[in-house]
Design a protein around this nucleic acid. Structure first.
Length: 650
DNA sequence: CTTAGGG
DNA sequence: CCCTAAG
């Protein structure tokens, strides 16, 4: 009882009546046993809108044309074959002109809402397994052809004129598909307008040279026969490591190439199709590329074995994500829906990450990560190499040795996570659309009058100004840098623009507190924050309060669990993933790094050494004031937070 | 004016 | 961050 997959045969560039470059689909239903049955009306209707959507998404009217260009681009690129010099390539490059190529199958299918592209090509075309597979596909092609003929001869009404075209066209072009054992190269491209439509088409202008090639008749036929794979990889989301791992799984060898683009292309081309995917335009967005490496169809060999053992897993943490996806045992369509709606799909096997050891499963690519402020990152990294190192060296008198060690671990953990955030920024930066800092919507209560609204532009200006100032300050001495030329708009009712506290400021505050004592805010302000005119003494006080809360919550909730979290739990998760992958006999697993590390903090983490210091100071003042009172204060706030602030009025 | 604390 | 009461 297998899934029924709707498949579409792609026929691009049909006869003149079709707009040039338009893509036509032939719907075929694949039964569990692999037989192909022309789709019924209902089935077509069910899928049709997707095809329509696809076309709509193309920047029409040139959209479809462009996709066609895109096809050509890819086909032609084999001539150029610029990139692959660095890696070993199939010995016989595609010869476009002489129409000699290795058969390559490009498969497009729609399953539910998602377009799934299956690329199956081979360079080792002589291999028995692939030959078997080839034959299998050919048989199926024959079957479909037969069905088509039957259907046509019976002149069954076909709901959409489109399909009519296809049918004719298909039978036309079909003759040289399987029998000749060679498939027009262009079919490779034909695939992509579907799968790789969207931005990629626009983002990468296509040369006129390629445009010319468009005019040539392009035959294409994309074919497929697979039920939906559970192993889906959105190449865009993969890190270089993951891509490399994917590469390894597919090609059975390591690669040291660090060029994401190149890796994606290679992967997408599956078993190294001689036909080069152009580096331009190969960005898969919004759709998925399915890399299939379990067994396929009947009599088809299992290609890849399950190779997930701990060692590769450790090396390629990220590659476990996909497995997790399977682990969810969520219907794939559901996952896809989630993805489509942009939600992050997360499943916790255990309850809460911070409370119990849990396996937090995240599907990458659904939600973009909001990275910390640029300034924060800058300063953080700067600090981590300076002040914090020094602080880490200084022994901390604290609430006990146990506590101290925990804190240290905690420190390394949070360092890691912050690092993580930074790198994350790096590799997400290219794909994700981040809201520029300056454009972020202001928080807090609504503006009180129109004047402020009109000052919005001014505010942005101000932000930019201060941003540049900050950069200047970051490089220079931190005391001198902040001249604070922030021109505050005349409107006094306006709420102060939110300025995130930089680690530098925090350190300064902590220093001030340790020097002058908590509560001497005006003093601290005057002596330590003289140059930070945008930080009032009240701000200092508020920040200190927040710092206290921060280190308190961390202390209570994670004191015991922390160690487990940072190291042991990591290994446990890996082990679990390993077991899972083995039990599912999956060959490929991708998991977000986040899954294996601790949960990403909601806001920029406060560096552990600082928290440590805050804690120390807090305990000092606590001791002075009397423990009961002070801790009650914090606890009270905490409890309130837990209950929700709304209960406050009760 | 400064602090503390709620919002 | 804002607001405000209490020193």
């Amino acid at each position: 009882m297998k899934d029924v997959v709707y498949e579409s045969r792609l026929c691009s560039n049909p006869p003149q009546e079709q707009a040039p470059g338009s893509v036509v689909y032939q719907l075929v239903r694949v039964e569990g046993d692999g037989t192909l049955i022309p789709a019924t009306d209902d089935e077509v209707v069910e899928v049709e809108h997707i095809l329509e959507d696809d076309k709509k998404d193309l920047p029409s009217p040139e959209g479809s044309g462009k996709s066609q260009l895109y096809v050509s681009d890819m086909a032609l690129s084999s001539k150029k074959s610029s990139i692959d010099s660095q890696e070993d390539l199939p010995s016989d490059p595609l010869k476009l002109d002489s129409q000699i190529y290795d058969p390559t199958w490009y498969i497009v299918s729609w399953h539910s809402l998602s377009c799934i592209i299956l690329l199956w090509s081979n360079s080792e075309g002589s291999s028995g397994k692939l030959n078997a597979r080839r034959e299998y596909i050919e048989v199926m092609l024959q079957k479909v052809k037969h069905e088509e003929k039957l259907r046509l001869s019976r002149e069954e009404p076909i709901h959409s004129p489109k399909c009519n075209n296809i049918n004719r066209q298909y039978s036309d072009q079909h003759s040289y598909l399987p029998a000749s054992n060679s498939i027009p190269t262009q079919e490779a491209g034909a695939l992509f307008p579907v799968g790789l439509r969207e931005r990629s088409v626009e983002e990468y202008p296509i040369s006129t040279e390629i445009e010319g090639a468009l005019t040539t008749d392009i035959h294409s036929s994309s074919y497929l026969d697979f039920p939906l794979s559970e192993h889906e990889v959105c190449l865009d989301d993969l890190t270089i490591r993951e891509l490399q791992e994917t590469f390894r799984v597919i090609f059975g060898r390591q690669t040291s190439v660090k060029d994401k683009l190149w890796l994606r292309r290679r992967i997408a081309m599956g078993l190294s199709n001689p036909c080069d995917i152009p580096s331009t335009g190969f960005i898969i967005k919004g759709r998925k590329i399915v890399i299939r490496n379990s067994k396929i169809g009947h009599g088809c060999a299992e290609s890849t074995k399950n190779e997930v053992d701990l060692q590769p897993a450790l090396q390629n943490i990220g590659s476990v994500k996909d497995e997790i996806q399977g682990l969810l045992s969520t219907p794939i369509s559901q996952i896809q829906e989630e993805r489509l709606s942009g939600k992050r799909l997360r499943t916790s096997l255990l309850e809460n990450n911070s409370k119990s050891g849990s396996l937090n499963v995240e599907i990458i690519g659904s939600k973009r990560v909001r990275r910390p402020t640029k300034r924060y990152i800058e300063e953080l990294s700067e600090l981590e190499t300076r002040d914090f190192c020094a602080q880490l060296m200084t022994p901390v008198k604290s609430l006990g040795g146990d506590q101290t060690s925990a804190s240290y671990r905690c420190g390394s953990a949070s360092n890691v996570s912050s690092q993580c955030a930074i790198t994350r920024k790096d590799f997400l930066g290219g794909c994700g659309v981040q809201i520029p800092y300056v454009l972020r919507v202001r928080r807090g209560r609504p503006r009180t009058n129109i004047v402020t609204l009109m000052n919005a532009a001014l505010v942005q200006e101000e932000k930019t100004v201060s941003e540049t100032q900050r950069k200047g300050a970051a490089s220079g001495d931190y005391l001198g840098g902040y001249a604070d030329i922030v021109l505050r708009p005349k409107c006094s009712t306006r709420r102060k623009h939110h300025r995130a506290w930089t680690p530098r400021e925090v350190v300064k505050l902590v220093e001030g507190v340790s020097k002058y004592g908590a509560g001497k805010w005006s003093e601290i302000k005057r002596l330590a924050f003289a140059s930070y005119t945008y930080r009032s003494s009240v701000d200092l006080k508020d920040k200190w309060r927040n710092l206290l809360r921060a280190c308190f919550t961390q202390r209570t909730t994670e004191k015991g669990v922390r160690i487990l979290h940072s190291s042991l739990l990591f290994l446990l998760r890996l082990l679990l993933l390993f077991i899972i992958s083995v039990s599912r006999n999956s060959s490929y697993v991708v998991v977000s790094t986040q899954t294996l590390t601790s949960r990403r903090p909601t806001s920029a983490p406060i560096p552990a050494p600082i928290l440590l210091r805050v804690r120390e100071l807090a305990s000092r003042t606590q001791f002075q004031e009397g423990i009961g009172f002070s801790s009650a204060k914090i606890t009270g706030r905490n409890r309130r937070d837990a209950q929700g602030k709304r209960s406050g009025f009760l």
